[in-house]
Simulated assay, not measured.
Amino acid sequence: MTETLVRASNVRKSYGHVEVLKGVSLTVKPGEVMCLLGPSGSGKSTFLRCINHLERINGGRIEVGGDLVGYARRHGKIFEMNPREVSRQRRGIGMVFQRFNLFPHMTALENIMAAPVGVKKVERSAAKARAYELLERVGLSHVAGHYPAQLSGGQQQRVAIARALAMDPELLLFDEPTSALDPELVGDVLDVMRQLAADGMTMIVVTHEIGFARSVADTVVFMDGGVVVEAGSPAEVLDNPQNPRTVAFLNSVM
């Protein structure tokens, strides 16, 4: 596939006088898995949040499926979308957060049903059937009636992945999905993500899991100081890095 699903062009983001993103440009093809690596504070998570307009960019542009994210062209000018338009646009972009963000008063099944019923107006019976299918897909059909407090962190994260899939996104964003988990729970979450990759889901993953990046990513991007330092295949970036900053980072985590 040669078409581009995600195109970021010279993206800049500042908080006050602190410039967090300093001109990031990346492209992601449909079905591609891109892993973003880098030290804390390098801008990885901020960039990810910009892709679905959870953060407003200060310069450049981001397009998903050929459409500007968070903005629209009208009469030859670019305007920021209103919240309702942004919400509608986000339907095609799923996001899995570090801290799960499940509704504590809803069961696993209800968490997965919530957005299809509330946002897409899917019939409850159809949403329920789909939620059961997704729980089965992530290996959790036996906890459909459990509340988040009754689940382990790894189970909560897998429910969060199922919830994101319930909206049938064309793109899934993962913001350090295993960093809040105990080590023995990481494997189950990564296995679900590996299967999603094998199924052809387009994914951008902020992670410190080097083994996952090596085995699953089509493209590995190393960021530091708000810029892309190095990008390429796992073999290029992880096994034969060219930039001293990449080398130093990998030596510290491997």
Rank of each mutant, 00 (worst) to 15 (best):
R245I: 12
A197Y: 07
M167G: 06
A162S: 12
G225N: 12
N251M: 07
V228L: 09
H208T: 05
L238V: 07
A248F: 10
V221P: 11
D182C: 10
R214Y: 14
A235I: 09
L190Q: 00
V221D: 06
P244S: 13
Q156P: 00
G225H: 13
L165Q: 03
N243P: 05
L173N: 12
R158F: 09
S152E: 12
L185A: 10
H208L: 06
E184N: 13
A149F: 15
L171N: 12
D188L: 00
E184T: 13
Q156V: 01
H208I: 08
F249I: 07
L181Y: 07
T219P: 00
V220I: 13
N251H: 13
V159D: 08
S215T: 13
V247F: 02
V159L: 05
D168N: 15
L173V: 10
L250H: 15
S152Y: 07
L190R: 05
S152F: 11
V247K: 15
G187T: 15
L181I: 11
M203K: 05
P241L: 05
D175P: 03
D224K: 12
I161V: 15
Q242C: 02
P183Y: 08
E170P: 00
Q157P: 03
P244G: 14
V205M: 11
T246H: 07
L172Y: 10
P177H: 01
P244Y: 13
L238F: 09
S179F: 04
V159T: 05
A217P: 05
R194Y: 07
R163A: 11
T202Y: 01
M203G: 03
V189W: 02
Q150F: 04
S152P: 10
M201S: 11
D188N: 09
F222I: 06
G200C: 12
L171Q: 12
V221R: 09
V159K: 08
L250Q: 14
E236K: 15
I210V: 15
D175Q: 05
E209R: 01
A217V: 04
V220N: 06
